[in-house]
């Protein structure tokens, strides 16, 4: 059967999507590539000049860029495993037989964080983590912890951002992994459970293979989204205090939209894009055999 489909048919199916994405996505990207090679400041458009790769060399040697990069990756390596582990825990819990109604309610509640608008999460962070009128300090006060200066202290602000990210996306991981668990054929799972009482062995040898595609998808999506992370931090801390939560996207926004150096911002963004693509390729190569077939 394979190879019998005519080229015209293939194009008829794929064409509209390719053309629209190419027009909408590539044209601006080309423009960004153009500005990245120029001294292109929006408030000095009379002085635009070609400067070759200067913007790129500047970015690559700029400690501010690397600090932001390092901060972003610190967040990623802290948050992503947490999200996966918590998500897996929730998924396994929901996959167990037991209390039907409560399980349904919990599964429904998982949708809430994920559907909450990211910028709203940040606004909510301002309200809830405020040192004085924030409910978080009140709650930890009940168990005897002194009020914490969440947003005004560099380290705590980072923790607050990480906390929100886990809150918002661990449930998403749970849903994806739960979906993965439901694809395990029940005969196999039951047979395995009869053979060993260890949930770990069942997870490792029976369920995990079915979870790999979901985990890869999470890795790709969450890596890309963490590198793009903007809305929530922007509305909660605006990158502060100091630069404690200035992740790479906030830095690019600051350079491009507040200092108006679009050339430099484009160079930074293109480097970021390359990093994201390389990481995704790695994930796919190592985990995601499915698409390679």
């Amino acid at each position: 059967m394979k190879g019998k489909v005519r080229r015209r048919t293939i194009f008829a199916f794929l064409g509209p999507a390719i053309v629209s994405l190419a027009v909408i996505g590539i044209a601006p990207l080309l423009f960004a590539a153009y500005t990245s090679l120029h001294n292109y400041n929006l408030t000095k458009l009379r002085k635009v000049k070609f400067i070759g790769l200067d913007n790129f060399t500047f970015v690559l040697t700029d400690p501010v860029f690397w600090d932001a990069m390092q901060r972003t990756f610190s967040l990623l390596v802290i948050v992503l495993p947490l999200q996966l582990l918590i998500g897996l825990g929730i998924a396994l819990l929901l996959h167990q037989p037991g209390i039907g109604l409560l399980k349904t309610l919990t599964r429904l509640s998982l949708v809430v964080p994920m559907a909450t608008t990211y910028s709203v999460v940040g606004l909510l962070g301002q309200v809830m983590f405020n040192i004085k009128y924030g409910v978080v300090n009140q709650l930890i006060g009940f168990i005897g912890i002194e009020p914490v200066n969440w947003i005004g202290d560099p380290e705590n602000a980072f923790i607050a951002v990480a906390f929100w990210d886990v809150w918002q996306w661990a449930p998403f991981c749970a849903l994806v992994l739960l979906a993965g668990l439901t694809t395990v054929p029940s005969e196999i799972e039951e047979a395995a459970r009869l053979e060993t009482p260890s949930w770990w062995i069942v997870l490792r040898h029976v369920q995990l293979p079915y979870l790999i595609p979901g985990i890869t998808a999470i890795l790709i999506l969450r890596t890309a989204d963490t590198l793009k992370l903007f809305d929530m931090v922007f509305t909660m801390t605006r990158g502060g205090p100091g630069s404690a939560t200035e992740f790479v996207s906030l830095m690019i926004q600051r350079i491009g939209f507040r200092a108006f150096d679009q050339g430099l911002a484009s160079a930074q963004a293109l480097i970021l894009l390359v990093v994201t693509i390389v990481l995704s390729q790695l994930y796919i190569r190592y985990f995601y055999k499915e698409v390679q077939q």
Partner: peptide, 22 residues
């Protein structure tokens, strides 16, 4: 002057760092 938007960003970054004793 026209350069203030760029300079204010620098002041904001380092002014805060000074306050935080970094």
């Amino acid at each position: 002057f026209a350069e203030w938007p760029e300079i204010t960003e620098i002041v904001q970054e380092w002014g805060t760092k000074i306050m935080l004793n970094e």
